[in-house]
Design a protein around this nucleic acid. Structure first.
Lengths: 219, 219
DNA sequence: GTATAAAGTTAGAGGAATCTAACAAATAAA
DNA sequence: TTTATTTGTTAGATTCCTCTAACTTTATAC
C-alpha cells in the first residue's frame, strides 16, 4: 500500500497526466515542493511497486495500476470536498487544504458513507469529475469560455483553476457553477469578454479569467 | 508542533494518566505497540519539547503543556466519534478506528464546524467527556455498576471500555447510554447482577461486564 | 539478604523521505 | 556545431521512528 507521500506523488502525476501523458521530474518537483533528487529516488521506488514507468533521463508515466490507485485517491479528495461544501457548509475556496489531509485516511466505510449521503455525486464543487469506485473517470468535454462567441448562451460548468485566489475572485463577482451566462461582446484587443448573468447586467472578464472558466453551450 | 507519532504518544499518556499520574515505559510500549527502546528514545525527545517529565528508570509524567496538547488531540478524537455516530450514522463500535486517523488532521475549522453541527457536545458516544477548546476536561464522577445495590435504579452513563468487542456485546443486549436499569439482584458468589431495562425483564450481567458499565444513581 | 525476574537503558543499525554539492546528459542558443 | 543552459543523476548526509542484542538497574521471591 502507498504511503501518504507516495499517494501525493501519484495524485500529482494523475493531475498532470490529464493533459499530456508524460511528466518530467522537474515538474513533479515543483508541484510537490521537493527537490529533484528527492523525486528521482522516490520515482525509482515507485517503479519497483509498478506504479510508474521510468527510464533514466526520460519523463515519468503512470502504469495502469498507478492510474487506478491515483484515481482512487483523487476520488477520496473530491468526495471530501463535496462533503465539506454540501454537508458541512464550507465555501468552495476553503476545502482544498482540508481535503488534502483527509484524502489519506484509510477507511473505506468513511468515504462510502460520504458518497451515499451526497447521493453519489459525479463532480466536485469545482466541477471536476469524481472517479468511480473502479477508478474510472468520465471525460467532460467542456469548452473554454474564451472560445465562445458574442451572442452565445453558456452554462458555467467547471473550473480549470481551483486556487483559493481564483475562487475568491469568483465569489466577489457572484459567479457560481450552473449559472447561465450571456456573452454580450468580446474585445478583440485584449480578448476580454463582457457577459451578463444572474442580477449582473454587464461584467467584464479578462482573458486570463475566461480561460479558467469551463462552460457548455446552451443549444 | 507534534508529529502524528508524538500525538499518539501524548494521547496514550493522557488516557493512562486519567487513573494514576505516572506511566511506566513498559506500559506505553504495550499500548503503543512498539518496543521499549523506541519509547525510551521517543520520550527523551518529548522531554526536550517540554511535553513530559522524565528521569532515568522513573515512570513518565505529562507536563501542563503536554496535558493540554494531549487533551486537544483527545478532543478531536471524541468530537470525530460523535460526528461519525450522530451525523454520519455509524455505530458506536465502528468509530474508534476512523477517529484514530482523523484526530491527526490539522484543520481547526474542520473540528470547529463539527462541534457546531453537533451543538457543542460534552461527551462522546461512549460517554467519555470531550475536553473543551482550552483542553480542560470535566471530571465525571460516575459509579461502577458493580458497586450498585439490589433495588437501585441507575442510568447507564458511560463505558470504562470502548473496545468493539464490548460494544458489540452491548449491542446484542440492546444496552445503550441513557437507559435506566433496575438492579434486581446481585449474586454474591460470582458478583454477577440481574437487571431489567427497556423491554428486557431480566438480564444477567457478569462481574466483568458490570465493571465496565458506569452509571449514576437515580435519586 | 542474596538470587532471580522484570523493567529500563545503551549501542548500533535500518528504512523512509528529505536535503546539498558535484557531476552528467539533453536541449537550446549563438 | 560548438557552447551555454537547463534538466536530471549520483553520492553522501540528515532526521524521524523503528528495531534487536547486550547490558544495567530496580523490584520480587525465597
Amino acid at each position: 500500500m502507498a504511503s501518504s507521500t507516495e499517494e501525493n506523488y501519484l495524485k500529482v502525476l494523475f493531475n498532470l497526466t490529464q493533459e499530456k501523458t508524460e511528466v518530467p521530474i522537474s515538474e513533479l518537483a515543483t508541484h510537490l515542493g521537493v527537490s529533484m533528487p528527492t523525486v528521482n529516488s522516490m520515482i525509482k521506488n515507485m517503479q519497483k511497486n509498478d506504479w510508474v514507468i521510468y527510464e533514466k533521463y526520460k519523463p515519468v508515466t503512470l502504469t495502469e495500476i498507478g492510474k487506478k490507485t491515483a484515481a482512487l485517491i483523487v476520488r477520496k479528495h473530491r468526495l471530501t470536498e463535496m462533503f465539506l461544501v454540501n454537508k458541512m457548509g464550507f465555501g468552495w475556496e476553503e476545502v482544498h487544504e482540508i481535503a488534502e489531509q483527509i484524502e489519506h485516511i484509510h477507511a473505506k466505510k468513511f468515504f462510502e458513507r460520504m458518497d451515499e449521503m451526497l447521493g453519489f455525486p459525479t463532480v466536485d464543487p469545482h466541477g471536476s469529475p469524481i472517479p468511480d469506485k473502479q477508478g474510472r473517470i468520465q471525460e467532460l468535454h467542456y469548452k473554454n469560455l474564451s472560445l465562445a462567441q458574442a451572442g452565445n448562451q453558456v452554462i458555467l460548468s467547471a473550473l480549470a483553476d481551483s486556487s483559493s485566489d481564483f475562487l475568491e475572485f469568483l465569489n466577489s463577482r457572484e459567479l457560481k457553477l450552473g449559472m447561465e451566462l450571456k456573452i454580450l461582446s468580446r474585445e478583440p484587443y485584449d480578448s476580454s469578454m463582457t457577459v451578463s448573468y444572474g442580477d449582473r447586467k454587464s461584467e467584464t472578464l479578462s482573458e486570463k479569467v475566461c480561460e479558467k472558466l469551463l462552460v457548455r453551450l446552451v443549444e
